[in-house]
Design a protein around this nucleic acid. Structure first.
Length: 549
RNA sequence: UGGGGUGUCGCCAAGCGGUAAGGCACGGGAUUUUGAUUCCCGCAUUCGUAGGUUCAAAUCCUGCCACCCCAGCCA
């Protein structure tokens, strides 16, 4: 059989198993799953797991189930399942089936009775505190529960009464009977069912006992016929239990195999649910989908293309090393994608007026929409000879190697003419108020006429008559408040995480469609949107700037 | 001081006994109506560390060191 080339250790394992014929009985069908608990929003950390799982599905022409791991009714809701589905859809991944762990409750319950009948589980009356106390420590073994040797009949009766609602929360649990002296604490008779008189968002109050993750997850995998259960490193300690649960349930081979990989961390990126929730709850951000949030809906709102996230995951790779990837690597992937796809446009963030003294009238110039897409397509830009340029595109005292406008030098106005600065008008504070130039008609952009006039650099501009006012929003990474012990977190967030100011841009941009990303020369990628009827340019990522290095 | 993991360039990461891929970052140069992009060129005599086996070790063996995870009726 023709095996695809493995690009990471997980695929290597799968290839080896395939080669050994492990899955011949099921037609070599590889099956994986993505199992979020619907208790929060997906964030960039989840993209890695998504890419790995969907990567396996595609590579081996296998199947992938999106499974809501909803075994804790206290925290889960449809709001989250919907947002998870929406996020996955946005990324462009297509799963084969949407399933819910809660759909297996009946089957899971039946397996629990089987455990009891075969002496692999018992009902324990110890309180949560007592269970903790008898579990032992990292270095000392635990002690057996006094209820550990109840008869099968008594266990069955008690368990059925638990299910029937005879006992209050916490009164009893069902425990796996494994080994209280195991060096692996997860094997010290873990709780597999608890009583919780809490309605389930899908099951209503059909149940008052709910299975624990360590029990429900492996069995869900087995029930679905999952071949590879990919999860993060912190579950390595659970693998023996994962295997035990499936073995005692008696599923036939090939049984699912859990493989762990390192989760994604990014410098300066807050990803723990706890902090994100705090930011939302305390109003530091506008919501889970605020463009500053690392949630997928936040990233989408920010204007990050899903392709960039996939490339990022591919670049970062899959391994078991604990790692923290630098944010620059993500930014580079976003730029790479946007550079190929975003329209070019002009906007001036810190405007200063530039008047061409020898120009009169008005004309339309051709502006190339994207020099990289090969189409050569252009659009019209109106020009009246009086424009705004960016304040730092002009220098009274130019630093070395400065390529833009200075008194007495030439510069090209992008898509228009080369101009020479003759004079400058300063205000009472010595700030540049107006720049006076003359232009060279023969240097009109696209002109065939050879001109002796040269310019060192090119700058962008917005016509003074036609330019529009826009609100600009720029962002800085959200950091944990712990990282700023001496500052007030709220104040810092207000001041730094979002900067709002007004700028000038082309009417084409201000009046263009929402959610469209643009590249502005030397400043960066911005998404145009409308907020309260006002045109807003919202920062996606900056452009590289080699001048300031 | 129990158990499970991980240590290869500033950050990721290949490598699987035959003499250190690639990406990001960084430095230099060329092209450019974006100081962007593109394009060259440079960037680990060394793989946590100390020994050992071998003609040959990042890869095998042994000891040590560092870091991460586990004592929820969370997932």
């Amino acid at each position: 059989m023709q095996l695809p080339e493995a690009t990471n250790f997980i695929e290597q394992i799968i290839n080896e198993e395939l080669e050994a014929g492990k899955f011949e009985s099921r037609g070599n069908l590889i099956q994986v799953r993505f199992p979020p608990e619907p208790n929060g929003y997906l964030h960039i950390g989840h993209v890695k797991a998504l890419c790995i799982n969907f990567g396996v599905k595609e590579k081996y022409h296998g199947k992938l189930n999106l499974r809501m791991d909803d075994t804790n009714p206290a925290k889960e809701d449809y709001e989250y399942v919907n947002s998870i589905i929406e996020a996955i859809k946005w990324l462009g991944f297509e799963y084969d089936k949407l399933v819910f762990a809660s759909d297996y409750y009946d089957e899971l319950y039946a397996i629990a009775e089987k455990y009891i009948m075969e002496g692999n589980a018992y009902v324990c009356d110890l309180s949560a505190e007592e269970i903790t106390a008898t579990r032992g420590t990292l270095t000392e073994p635990g002690t057996n529960s006094p209820y550990r040797n109840r008869s099968v009949e008594e266990n069955l009766k008690l368990f059925r009464e638990m299910k029937a609602g005879k006992y209050p929360d916490g009164a009893k649990v069902l425990r796996a009977k494994i080994d209280m002296s195991s060096p692996n604490i997860n094997m010290r008779d873990p709780v597999i069912y608890r009583i919780a008189h809490v309605p389930h968002y899908r099951q209503g109050d059909k149940w008052c006992i709910y299975p624990m993750y360590d029990y429900a997850h492996p069995l869900s995998d087995a029930i679905e016929g999952i071949t590879h259960s990919l999860c993060s490193l912190e579950f390595e300690n659970h693998r023996p239990l994962y295997d035990w649960v499936i073995e005692k349930a008696g599923f036939p081979a090939p049984v699912p195999r859990q493989i762990e990989f390192a989760r994604l961390n990014i410098t300066n990126m807050l990803m723990s649910k706890r902090y994100l929730k705090k930011l939302v709850d305390e109003g530091f951000v506008r919501g889970w989908d605020d463009p500053r949030m690392p949630t997928l809906m936040g990233l989408k709102n920010r204007g990050v293309p899903p392709e960039a996230l996939k490339k990022f995951c591919a670049d970062v790779g899959v391994a078991k090393n604990y790692s923290v990837v630098s944010l620059a690597q993500l930014d580079e992937c976003i730029r790479d994608e946007l550079n190929k796809t975003a329209e070019r446009a002009m906007a001036v963030f810190d405007p200063v007026k530039l008047t061409i003294t020898n120009y009169s009238g008005e004309e339309e110039l051709d502006f190339e929409i994207n020099p990289l897409d090969g189409s050569g397509a252009t659009r019209k830009v109106k020009f009246t000879g009086t424009v705004y340029i960016d304040r730092d595109d002009f220098a009274l005292n130019p630093p070395p190697k400065y390529k833009r406008l200075t008194v007495g030098s030439n510069v090209r106005l992008k898509a228009a003419y080369i101009v020479r600065c003759d004079d400058v008008v300063l205000d009472e504070n010595g700030e540049v108020k107006e720049i006076l130039c003359t232009y060279f008609p023969e240097t009109r952009s696209g002109s065939e006429v050879k001109s002796e006039v040269k310019a060192k650099g090119v700058i962008h501009w917005v016509d003074a008559k036609y330019g529009k006012d826009v609100q600009v929003r720029r962002y800085k990474p959200l950091l944990k408040d712990e990282e700023y012990p001496d500052q007030d977190y709220a104040e810092r967030l207000d001041k730094e995480s979002e900067t709002i100011f007004y700028a000038k841009c082309e009417p084409y941009v201000a009046e263009g469609e929402d959610e469209k990303p643009y590249q502005f020369m030397r400043t960066g990628y911005y998404k145009k949107c409308t907020d309260g009827g006002e045109a807003v340019l919202s920062e996606i990522v900056t452009l590289k700037d080699n001048f300031n290095k």
